[in-house]
Simulated assay, not measured.
Amino acid sequence: MQEPVFSYIPGKSFLHTLDPRTKLTAVMLLGILAFRTESFFGIGILFAFFVALTSFSGLPARVFLRAVRPMVLFIIFIFLAQLFFTEGKVLTSFWILHPSLEGLQNGFRLSARFILLLLFAALMTASTDPSAITCGIERMLRPLPLRWLGVNSFELATMMNLSIAFLPLLFERVERTKAAQASRGMYFGKNPFHSVPALAIPLIRGVIRDAEELALAMESRGYQGTRRTSMHELLMQRRDWISLLALVLFAALLLRF
């Protein structure tokens, strides 16, 4: 059975052994770089950097292809919107649509940025245990004065972790719902818009039911939303500091282009 999208794949690679705070910081920094880099050369360097990180992780390529596949239609929409609605040098004309050279460049640039975000996020979730991500987020948010907002760092970390954990389950439920409706005679290729209610209604009911079951399970185990001990004792080691330093130097060099 295939692993769900954005799921954790155990391993003993260099990326698997890094502290989750190191990987969270790296993903945030790489996301900023993806949107700050304007040149196609810089975007190409980011893709090459991702390939290098993937080789260190030992993760199969299908993990990242499955992460991008659900967002293909959204990425195509972004590309077409930039292509047809950006003013500039007109390439050709299609009825009332006038694609421009600047729109083509912006479309490729923006699409590549979203793909990079998905790839780096998939790399982090595939090489980091979800409970370790929760612990890392909680430790990073702990110094912030969140009590003034009526929450604490542990509650926020738990909500983020539940969101990450529910994402692959949501994609898996979509596939199961689609297969169940197809077995009842639903044909999705003839008119996809007519099949939206057949997918959306059971999907929403299933997600709400899963959320209720999770809430009951947490209450039955005495969850109070307060700070608790963790099975992951985080400790930044030498390889973490070296990795962060190397990433900062890489970002500084990339922003110069």
Rank of each mutant, 00 (worst) to 15 (best):
T17I: 12
L18Q: 12
L18M: 11
D19C: 02
R21Q: 10
A26V: 00
M28G: 04
L29A: 07
L30K: 00
E38Y: 12
S39L: 03
F40Y: 06
F40R: 00
F41N: 04
F41R: 02
I43W: 01
L46Q: 04
F47A: 00
F50V: 00
T54F: 14
S55H: 15
F56P: 01
L59R: 08
F64T: 00
R66F: 13
V68G: 05
V72S: 09
I76V: 12
I76Y: 06
L80P: 05
A81H: 14
Q82Y: 08
F84C: 05
F85S: 01
F85E: 02
T86G: 13
E87N: 13
K89Q: 11
V90G: 12
I96H: 13
L101Q: 12
E102Q: 05
L104W: 02
L104D: 04
F108Q: 03
F114G: 00
F114V: 00
L116S: 01
L123I: 04
L123Q: 02
T125F: 06
T125R: 02
T128R: 03
D129I: 01
S131E: 13
A132L: 02
I133M: 13
I137V: 11
L141I: 00
R142S: 05
P143Y: 04
P145G: 03
W148V: 13
L149E: 03
G150F: 07
V151Q: 08
N152A: 03
F154W: 14
F154C: 05
E155D: 05
E155M: 12
L156M: 08
T158M: 14
A165G: 11
L167V: 10
F171P: 05
F171R: 03
R176E: 15
K178T: 10
K178D: 09
A179W: 02
A180N: 09
A182I: 03
A182W: 09
S183M: 14
G189K: 12
H194S: 11
V196Q: 08
P197F: 13
A200I: 11
I201L: 14
L203K: 04
I204E: 09
R205L: 15
V207C: 14
R209S: 15
A211C: 07
G222N: 04
Q224G: 05
M236D: 13
R238C: 15
W241P: 09
L245Q: 10
F250V: 04
A251T: 08
L253P: 03
